[in-house]
């Protein structure tokens, strides 16, 4: 029973930790499947978290904060598009520029506007997304296993977590079952064919980036409005890169990418639980090395030692219309 309880606790925090990763990985899925490398997930998330923190603090509404987060993130995505699609700039350089710019700008503006050492004011509960208890959780609590699973795992998350659960099938549907999804995938594999069919390559790519912006906005809002009570300096702490790793690990597909995010979230949850603990037979587990596992796994996968990652064919290549 105790082991079950510990497992549920780890799974529960896995879900919480994986939520921003899943959202960001789905965002990266849109840009990268359309042929645009998206190193800038980190920056978009951080910018969104900052906008969410600022606006929620000023207006006192989590929903207005969420809207601001999405707007900020979409603007950054459009900047990426302006550099990479309109001016055919280097996509890696542009993404990196956005990450560095946002990391500096958010900390700078937070100090200049709020003078609290680089954070936005602490948000009251009314301006945050709080966990929602499902009906009947307290009644079922007495039932073994079912009660724990229902009460701890399914119930008791905030609205963005549930939105994320919906987002995965929605993105998969959009990608594989809609005209836009077909064009998006085609543009990432063979933009010339799409152009010949009379569809604007730039148009599809811009729309893909806007979708990525919206999802990163959700991820950023989750960090600032749900996980914490406000924006903190560099609060994404590399989550954008882990999401990118998960996207690659999931072979640029929605469901495998989500599973990779859950795996990486689980590693994170386990390493938090293992902090300072010592396992029988193993001694103290080096937490830092557990935290490095997502990166190591991604490198191993990329090297093709386990399976083979197949990137979209036209990724990273700016499209030049002929004639």
């Amino acid at each position: 029973m105790e082991i079950l309880l510990a497992a549920v606790v780890v799974l529960d925090s896995t879900l919480r930790l994986a939520t921003p990763l899943i959202l960001a990985a789905l965002a990266g899925l849109f840009s990268e499947r359309s042929g645009i490398i998206d190193i800038g997930l980190e920056g978009k998330m951080l910018g969104a978290a900052f906008a969410a923190g600022c606006v929620a603090a000023v207006t006192g509404s989590a929903w207005v904060g969420l809207t601001a987060a999405i707007a900020a993130s979409v603007l950054l995505a459009l900047l990426h598009g302006y550099a990479c699609i309109t001016h055919r700039g280097n996509q890696v350089v542009s993404g990196l520029a956005i990450n560095i710019l946002v990391s500096g700008l958010t900390a700078f503006l937070a100090v200049a506007w709020f003078a609290q050492g680089g954070r936005t004011p602490q948000l009251p509960d009314s301006a945050r997304f709080l966990s929602m208890e499902w009906p009947g959780a307290d009644v079922l609590d007495a039932v073994p296993i079912v009660g724990v699973v229902y009460g701890e795992l399914l119930s008791g998350h905030n609205v963005i977590v549930y939105l994320t659960w919906l987002a995965v099938p929605a993105v998969a549907l959009a990608l594989y079952r809609t005209r836009f999804g077909l064009r998006l995938r085609a543009v990432g594999e063979n933009p010339f064919a799409v152009d010949t069919a009379g569809v604007s390559v730039s148009g599809v790519r811009y729309r893909a980036l806007v979708c990525a912006g919206v999802l990163c906005g959700l991820a950023g809002a989750y960090l600032a409005l749900a996980q914490s009570a406000g924006f903190l300096r560099d609060m994404t702490a590399g989550k954008g890169y882990i999401a990118l790793a998960a996207l690659i690990f999931g072979n640029w597909r929605p469901v495998p990418a989500m599973l990779a995010c859950l795996l990486f979230g689980c590693l994170d949850a386990v390493s938090i639980r293992l902090q300072g603990a010592s396992l029988p037979g193993l001694g103290e587990v080096p937490v830092q090395l557990v935290q490095a596992l997502p990166y190591v796994l991604t490198v191993v996968l990329l090297a093709g030692f386990v399976g083979r990652g197949v990137a979209p064919k036209a990724i990273g290549v700016p499209y030049t219309k002929e004639g």
């Binding site: 996509q91 560095i100 700078f108």
Partner: peptide, 25 residues
């Protein structure tokens, strides 16, 4: 005091953006 050292990181990002990604703007 309102202008922290983060300003330098901002300039760094802007230089990478304008001299790198938007080189031919």
């Amino acid at each position: 005091p309102a202008i922290t050292r983060d300003m330098v990181v901002v300039i760094q990002g802007l230089v990478i953006l304008f001299a790198g990604a938007l080189e031919y703007m």
